[in-house]
């Protein structure tokens, strides 16, 4: 087994805190092309513990209608990888400690060039990357060395159907956190599972005594669902509900800050 001897990064530091963590996802370039940095800063200042910046894609298979629509708007606004890295240059002067992850789909990263992408991300001070359609075997064969060289942590998803041995393998492949998908469905869906079924799944994962901390995502939308997810994990991830709060807001950063307050206060 590989022994990881990478330097600590901001993601691991965040999990040292003795509290439940709120991870917020938002789409880069939404609602306006230049909203990215003001929204990011507002989220961090309001108390988001980790922030995922969505890299918009034309065909986001794992996303529900809200994030799809925000991606369409962002692309229409002119967002792309080059623009995003331009916006993020110098971000660590204003958001020094909050872990920042980039989340998106593989094709735009491939076209940008994986090495190029990791180099730019690391230079901007990004800590982790979530690419849901990147297969584990491909990650190990083609991406792992590049990620490590740039001290970027991959985050992998786990679902109620993920087999135990696969969960163990995922747990070995990163030093960040495990993204527990709460139940069947795309992002932003209503959680229709019986509570007992979901509790049993979270409990089963907890009982595995994994190396990495866990954050629960998909279908978490408010203070109540955040609190209930936190019973089984070190925190939770909210995306679609934040995007909804930004939709049509006169002042997107203020709306982002108010949303974070509504969850943690």
């Amino acid at each position: 087994m590989t022994v990881h001897t990478q330097p600590m990064n901001r993601i691991q530091n965040a999990f040292q805190q003795d509290k439940k963590l709120l991870n917020i996802y938002f789409t880069a370039g939404y609602p306006e092309l230049n909203s990215t940095v003001p929204v990011l800063k507002a989220l961090a200042d309001a108390g988001a513990d980790l922030i995922e910046i969505g890299m918009p894609f034309s065909d986001p298979l794992a996303d529900g209608p809200v994030i799809q629509a925000s991606s369409t708007v962002a692309l229409h606004n002119g967002m792309n990888m080059r623009v995003l890295f331009g916006q993020l240059a110098g971000i660590r002067a204003t958001v020094p400690d909050t872990p920042i992850l980039l989340m998106g789909y593989l094709n735009p990263v491939m076209q940008f060039g994986v090495e190029n992408f990791c180099c730019e991300a690391a230079a901007a001070g990004v800590d982790g990357v979530i690419l849901p359609d990147l297969p584990l075997d491909d990650y190990v064969a083609e991406y792992q060395d590049i990620f490590r060289r740039h001290n970027l942590r991959p985050v992998f998803l786990i679902t109620p159907q993920t087999a135990p041995e696969r969960i163990r393998r995922i747990d070995e492949l990163t030093d960040s956190f495990l993204y527990l998908v709460s139940g069947p469905g795309t992002t932003g869906g209503a959680n229709t599972q019986a509570a007992g079924v979901q509790d049993a799944y979270f409990q089963r994962i907890e009982d595995m005594q994994l190396r990495n901390p866990r954050l629960i995502g998909f279908g978490i939308s408010d203070k109540q669902s955040f609190a209930s997810a936190c019973r089984y994990a070190e925190g939770a991830i909210i995306g679609s509900a934040l995007i909804k709060a930004l939709e049509g807001a006169d002042d997107a950063p203020a709306a982002a800050a108010a949303f974070v307050s509504s969850i943690i206060q």
């Binding site: 849901p132 359609d133 297969p135 786990i158």
Partner: peptide
Amino acid sequence: ERGYYGQFGGAFIPEMLYPN
């Protein structure tokens, strides 16, 4: 075995589809 014809093919799917 992993579904490649030359450089083309494979299974680039989110984890939610992996078991199926």
